[in-house]
């Protein structure tokens, strides 16, 4: 009977995967699969890439996109020291208040402050971007079916000219991987858009990969802790299941002995 149980769970798992794959098939082309450093059972974030990706975010994305769920203190997790985090925070201003006169005021940010948004509200963001709302990037990789693959494909999927016969609306740009191919965001990343502090060559691919990994981290900052805990829990449960199985079998043997005694 055990084999039935096992095959049952196996088939259920299979069904989940199949249905999930099918959900994923939408109208835009499937982005190419990339072996990210953080994928797999033992996958961890590439800390150097995260730091570079943060630089790309800071210098390129942050002018239009917010990162609401990330506080400066979170940067400690990707390898910045407490002093560096303080310095980074101090470069930004956040609104505080009201003060004793009842006025809101600006002060330099502290590590406990959240990343300041580039626009005061959604309407201001729309107004400044030709009616299109730059989405918050904290969860962008998790909110897309193909995740990091999609974001990378999008960042590297711009074409200067749409294919022949494609009618591109005014103020829109052609992208291979955006659903419907018309995207309001102009190509954000070019060769040498950022001068990397660590001297890495800033190709479009490198910049896109790094910022994608940074945004994968902002979406799932507990990934490493999760996988580490998971390994321990699963090993424990496997041993416990084996033990429980032996106990169960030995207990039931008593029933059989009773039968043969009669």
């Amino acid at each position: 009977m055990l084999k039935y149980v096992i095959s049952f769970f196996a088939s259920i798992t299979l069904v989940f995967f199949i249905t999930n794959k099918l959900y994923a098939a939408g109208d835009a082309p499937k982005p190419p699969n990339i072996d990210w450093h953080q994928e797999g059972i033992f996958g961890t974030y590439d800390k150097a890439a995260l730091i570079r990706g943060f630089q790309v975010f800071q210098e390129v994305c942050a002018s239009c996109h917010s990162l609401n769920f990330i506080a400066f203190r979170n940067l400690l997790e990707i390898g910045f020291s407490p002093e560096e985090v303080k310095l980074i925070a101090a470069e930004y201003e956040v609104e505080d208040g009201p003060d004793d006169e009842g006025e809101m005021f600006m002060r330099s940010a502290r590590p406990s402050d959240y990343w300041p948004a580039p626009f005061a509200n959604d309407k201001a963001a729309r107004a400044a971007n030709g009616g299109a709302m730059p989405p918050d990037l904290s969860l962008i990789t998790k909110s897309k079916v193909a995740g990091s693959d999609y974001l990378y494909a999008l960042l590297t999927g711009y074409r200067d000219e749409p294919p022949e016969g494609f009618e591109l609306s005014d103020g829109m740009y052609y992208n291979d991987y955006y659903p419907g191919h018309q995207i309001a965001m102009p190509q954000p990343i070019y060769e040498e858009s950022v001068e990397y502090i660590d001297g890495t060559e800033a190709t479009i691919e490198q910049l896109s990969k790094d910022v994608t990994q940074f945004l994968a981290w902002t979406a799932e900052p507990k990934l490493e802790e999760r996988k580490r805990t998971g390994l321990k829990v699963l090993i424990f449960l496997a041993i416990f299941a084996a033990l429980a199985f032996v106990i169960y079998k030995r207990t039931w043997k008593r029933l059989k002995i009773k039968d043969t005694e009669e």
Partner: peptide, 19 residues
């Protein structure tokens, strides 16, 4: 004893997904 065993197997499957 039997339920303990299958319950543990179930938790194993659950935690594969969780983690």
């Amino acid at each position: 004893t039997k339920d303990l065993f299958t319950g543990t197997v179930m938790l194993f499957v659950l935690f594969v997904f969780v983690f």
